[in-house]
């Protein structure tokens, strides 16, 4: 895959702009998955994908063939997702005072599930776990979330994560540890109880 990525990049650099489509087709869904897990929002994730490929195209001269193209893309996507989430949080903090108190916590929605849902107990539990995972991920620091998402979902090594985030390997490792600790604290009572 990486060899063919290198070939496609070389063709783009040589002026064959259509070769970039090969890279977009090949990597856009995995970049979307990363972006969605980082932002928790489909529209934001789609924006991240588009912006990632725009930036990658403009910075193609910076990519070095000895590194993985997908890792480089993830790095761009992760950094842009971080910026986006920070901006969203700033916006949310300023808007929070104007938000009516009747929005309810995510957990409230669980109790509002229609009684006719198929397999209600199992579905409810699964939904509860998913909501708990999502809200715990939201509570992680941006560094913890990025490091964890890259390690857990994208299978990136600690070395790759430290390079992507501009951290030492030790700092990347500890970000993952902290994320796991927080997830464990939130999820353990739930998943242990289920067994």
């Amino acid at each position: 895959m990486e060899d063919t990525d290198s070939v496609a990049v070389a063709r783009v650099k040589a002026g064959d702009g259509d070769a970039y489509r090969v890279l977009v087709d090949r990597h856009s869904r995995s970049v979307f998955r990363l972006a969605y897990r980082m932002t928790g929002n489909q529209q934001d994730a789609e924006d991240v994908v588009q912006e990632t490929f725009m930036r990658a195209y403009r910075q193609l001269h910076r990519w070095e063939a000895r590194s993985s193209f997908s890792t480089w893309l993830y790095r761009i996507a992760a950094n842009y997702s971080l910026d986006l989430v920070r901006a969203r949080k700033r916006h949310a903090e300023t808007a929070i005072d104007e938000t009516p108190a009747n929005q309810g916590a995510p957990d409230d929605a669980i109790h509002a599930l229609p009684a006719s849902s198929p397999g209600p107990d199992r579905l409810l539990f699964s939904d509860q776990v998913q909501k708990c995972v999502a809200s715990t991920l939201d509570e992680l620091s941006q560094q913890e979330r990025t490091a964890f998402v890259l390690r857990h979902f994208e299978g990136q090594s600690i070395e790759e994560i430290s390079a992507a985030l501009g951290l030492s390997a030790n700092a990347a490792k500890h970000s993952i540890f902290r994320a796991v600790q927080k997830l464990r604290r939130a999820l353990e009572p739930m998943v242990s109880h289920a067994l």
């Binding site: 776990v129 857990h152 796991v180 999820l187 353990e188 998943v191």
Partner: peptide
């Protein structure tokens, strides 16, 4: 730990 981390995979995309 496995149970917790495996349950994280349930997060849908």
């Amino acid at each position: 730990l496995q149970r917790v981390l495996n349950s994280v995979d349930s997060l849908p995309v």
